[in-house]
């Protein structure tokens, strides 16, 4: 306990963590986003009624789906990288290469999901 922080916000923003830092930020953002999304989605399904339907209608909109798919897919694929590297610590040396592989997996999978979601939305007049 008793951690003191002596780094200002501007210094923190200028921190050049590069690839690993970006995955850390996106992983954390995605995790929190999912927690908030799933908690509200479950409550709205549980309570139902007009309010619940309204919230779920927002969640089922294609633009929201694009955001939640980004969060979930990135968190899942990055989480697999973290799990593999943490369970096999010898691979830690190849951290940066692992992040490149991770993007090579994430971009096609998410890209395909975006293509499908957007083309379905356009096709159905949404």
């Amino acid at each position: 306990m008793g951690i003191t922080r002596n780094v200002g916000l501007m210094t923190a923003l200028r921190y050049k963590g590069q690839g690993p830092m970006l995955t850390f930020v996106l992983h954390r953002l995605g995790g929190m986003g999912m927690a908030v999304f799933i908690a509200i989605h479950m409550l709205s399904s549980f309570l139902g009624g007009k309010g619940g339907q309204f919230v779920n209608a927002i969640y089922e909109h294609w633009s929201f789906q694009l955001v939640i798919f980004f969060f979930v897919l990135f968190h899942a694929i990055n989480g697999l990288r973290i799990t593999i590297i943490d369970l096999l610590p010898k691979l830690l040396e190849y951290q940066r290469e692992a992040i490149w592989v991770e993007w090579l997996v994430f971009i096609p999978v998410y890209g395909f999901a975006v293509f499908v979601i957007v083309s379905t939305a356009l096709g159905s007049g949404g």
Binding site: M1, G2, R28, G31, M32, M34, A35, I38
Partner: peptide
């Protein structure tokens, strides 16, 4: 499984910003 994983994740995040006992 996801609830346990997620709630613990939120605790980890909170611990980065809430440091008093």
């Amino acid at each position: 499984v996801a609830t346990a994983h997620g709630v613990h994740g939120l605790v980890v995040i909170a611990d980065d910003y809430i440091v008093t006992s």
